[in-house]
Every structure is written in C-alpha cells, then in structure tokens.
Design a protein around this nucleic acid. Sequence first.
DNA 1: TATTGTTATACTCTATAACTATA
DNA 2: TATAGTTATAGAGTATAACAATA
Lengths: 156, 156
Amino acid sequence: MNRQTRPQSCDGIVFGEITSSVGFLLRLAQVRAFEEFYDVLGHHGLKPGEFTVLWVIRLNPGARQGDIARVLSVKPAHMTKLVQRSVDEGRVERHVPEDDRRSVRLRLTAAGERFVDDNKQDFLNFAPAGAPSLDEEEGRMLVKLLRKFNGMEDVV
Amino acid sequence: MNRQTRPQSCDGIVFGEITSSVGFLLRLAQVRAFEEFYDVLGHHGLKPGEFTVLWVIRLNPGARQGDIARVLSVKPAHMTKLVQRSVDEGRVERHVPEDDRRSVRLRLTAAGERFVDDNKQDFLNFAPAGAPSLDEEEGRMLVKLLRKFNGMEDVV
DNA sequence: TATTGTTATACTCTATAACTATA
DNA sequence: TATAGTTATAGAGTATAACAATA
C-alpha cells in the first residue's frame, strides 16, 4: 500500500531496469543534493565546489594547487579559475616556493579562515538534511558505501 | 593494514569531516562514474543524459515532453535542447496532439528503437562495472539506498 | 490567468589542447 | 624532455526570466 510521494514516478511514467543503474541514480541524487544545498546555503553565497577547496586548503595549509586538484578530481584548468576567484575574494593566498618555481602553494587568509569557520557547521550539517528520506543508520551506510565506491575507505 | 590504493588521499592531503558529507561523496562518485562511462561507452557516441531520455521514451511512447523532463529532473529549457538533438539525429519524433496543442508528445523512430536496443546491454551492464570496489551485495545495498534517497523506493 | 514549451542569457563544471616557465 | 600551472575554447548541464501559443 504505497501512498508515499513518488517524485520520480508521477505522471504514470515507468523507468524499467534503469532504476538499478548506479550512474543514473547518482545523477538524480546529486541533482537533488545540489538543489537542497542551494536552498539551505545559497544565502551565504556559498558554492559547493568553492567551499570544498577552501576546506581542504584550511586542513592542508601550504599544499600544492595541483595536488589539491588531483585529490578532489578537479581538472587543473578549472582549479586555476576556482583559486583565482577565491584569491579575488580575498580568501586564499598563493605562494610560489623558491625550491620549485613552477608550483603554487595555497593557504587561507584570515578572512578565508573566518569564512570557513562561519559556514563550517551549515556545510557539514547539510549532509543529514540532504537525506530526510533516510534514517540515521541508512545515512551512515550510504556514506560508508559511497566512500568505498570512491576508494576512500581509509581516508582521513 | 591498509595497503590498498587510495586515490583520494595521495600526496598526504587530509579531508577531515568532509568525508562524511553526502553531497561531497556524491560529487566524487558521479565524476568517477562518468569517467568510467565515457571510457567504456564513449566509442558508441553515447551520452548518459541522452540515452536515459531515449530509454524513458521507449518505455513510455507518446509521453509528454514536460512529464519526462520532470521525472528525470531535467529542466524544461534543457529538455528542449536534448529532444531537438535526438530529433536531428533521427531517433525521436515529436507530435502535437489536437486535444492540447501546447503540449508535445514523444516517441522513438525505428532508428531510435534500434539505437536503444543496440546499446541497452552496455548501458545497463555499466552499473556493476562502475563499482568494482563494491561486492555484489554492497552494490545492491548502494542501489537500494540511492533509490530511497531519491524517493524512488517503489518506482517501477 | 495559468500552462506548455521555446528562446536567450549566464554560470558551474568538465575536456582538451596549446602555451609559459621552470626543472 | 618532462612537469606545473595557465589560457583558450568547446561542450554538458543547471538556473532564470521573458516570451508565444494555447487552454
């Protein structure tokens, strides 16, 4: 007796076997998560990609731009733009070290640290808010499986 | 004793609490799934979004363009472009019914049906290939949780 | 007035290649 | 010759608003 709302199957449209495709489900989940992200955090002028980069810089001050891009699966060309924007906003400082002048090392400015601190709670709390349809245990299980899917089981 | 590859944590970069953010994990998972999708199926000229739309039209011939867009969380403006492309490729026919001449109803051409048939197996089989790090039971659990996350538990 | 779909514009993110400056 | 980052361009996708045709 299914009387729940079924956002993806209204209008009598059927999906067939595609409902078991991980890729298909991931796309829908991400669209949903982003929509909710902007509903909840949009007023801060917060963008998911931008905040994630600031977060990682904060935890790894002086890390190389290319290394951060690689672990976040952000393409170098896009990373340049992301960093440039954060520099323009006064949240990130770039530093070219003497021992390898091809590379760029990143750290947050005081304003950048303040920005991360101010939005940290909202950003981290967003996760459970993003999954109101899952109970706590299911949410933990989803996180665990996604981490494994991403090859991140033992990442700190 | 963790000697596995850890693609997201090389270079000694740490992630902190963000590794429990569903939104963050979903983005990484989708990037990974799309990369693999293009590696495996790119030679067919197959695009995930385009194929999904063809698939749903095939299962729901004569469905309205707007209804399909809604259930797939595709924005109307983008749907127009997707459909236009498939029409140009000779895979989809548009039909404006007499009883409501604002709407557009879609169905596959013979070439469109052939295209879906030819690529169906590859597309559906892609899911397990996308998650080599998960065993069969974990894969089923991930699908189940993502379906629930998406509010699709009882979607056919 | 409301609804369906279209057009136009802008922004995020990805993909790729060509380029610079270093090493 | 290889590496780090930049620039430029293309494309997929989303967001939004204005619009025409129809209801």
